[in-house]
């Protein structure tokens, strides 16, 4: 999952980036409004975290500009201004959620999860066939049997499940799963896919993770 954090306070930005990365999000940070807008329109993010008071362009205007450019990435506004009028202004400018500072980090995580929910999934769970991933509880099970995954495997599986039935390249995975970047040996992703297969597909009848040689991977039931 790839997030963009636009926050002018360098310390807060750094801290949040670290905390989110530890949750296996890939986080880009910008301290400037215009730069933030540029990043938000050129890269694809799953959620944008936006501070309101920013140099060169404030959060509300950034959000409006984003929506004008038909970028509909979910935006969560983070701001020390907690007045109702300001919340309304923020939400009216096209933001999806509004979190007043100071906030609990857990709440920020929960709100990011809300924005990541797709319409057909009611809660924090993702499902393909009988494979179920619960992001809130950090649990994975297949056919009711719990499967133990490491945090990195979990992040990878989540990414694949969110794009179920679509083909995902190794590059896309690398860009979106921050933690995989750490040891950047070229075959690190195939190693993780291999491990994931061992846990998810091997013990069961139907394989769900498919490799498309030279193109990438796809999660879904066989067509």
């Amino acid at each position: 999952m790839r997030l963009l954090l636009v926050e002018d306070d360098k310390k807060i930005a750094k801290t949040l980036q670290r905390g989110l990365q530890e949750e296996y999000y890939s986080v880009d940070v910008s301290h400037d409004g215009k730069e933030g807008l540029y990043l938000a329109t050129t890269n694809e993010y799953d959620v944008i975290l936006l501070d309101l008071m920013l140099p060169s362009m404030d959060g509300v205007n950034l959000c409006k500009a984003l929506r004008r450019k038909r970028v509909h990435t979910p935006v969560i506004m983070l701001t020390a201004k907690g007045e109702i009028e300001e919340r309304i202004e923020g939400l009216d400018s096209g933001a999806n959620d509004y979190l007043p500072k100071p906030f609990a980090f857990e709440e920020l995580l929960a709100r990011i999860r809300v924005q990541l929910r797709t319409p057909e999934q009611g809660g924090d769970t993702l499902q393909v066939a009988d494979l179920v991933l619960d992001r809130g509880k950090k649990q994975v099970s297949r056919g009711g049997v719990p499967i133990r995954l490491t945090a990195k495997e979990f992040a990878l599986l989540e990414y694949l499940l969110r794009r179920k039935n679509a083909v995902v390249s190794e590059g896309m995975i690398r860009e979106n799963i921050q933690s995989l970047d750490e040891d950047s040996s070229s075959n690190v992703i195939s190693v993780y896919i291999y491990r994931l297969r061992n846990k998810i597909d091997k013990p069961f009848d139907k394989p769900l993770i498919h490799t498309l040689r030279g193109i990438g991977y796809r999660v879904g039931e066989d067509v």
Binding site: D9, T15, L16, A80, E83, K101, F105
Partner: peptide, 23 residues
Amino acid sequence: GDISHELKTPLTAMRSELEITLR
């Protein structure tokens, strides 16, 4: 309003940092 805003910024920094560290 200004006072609370002014105080919230360092509080946010501190809170996030402590919470994330404790995780």
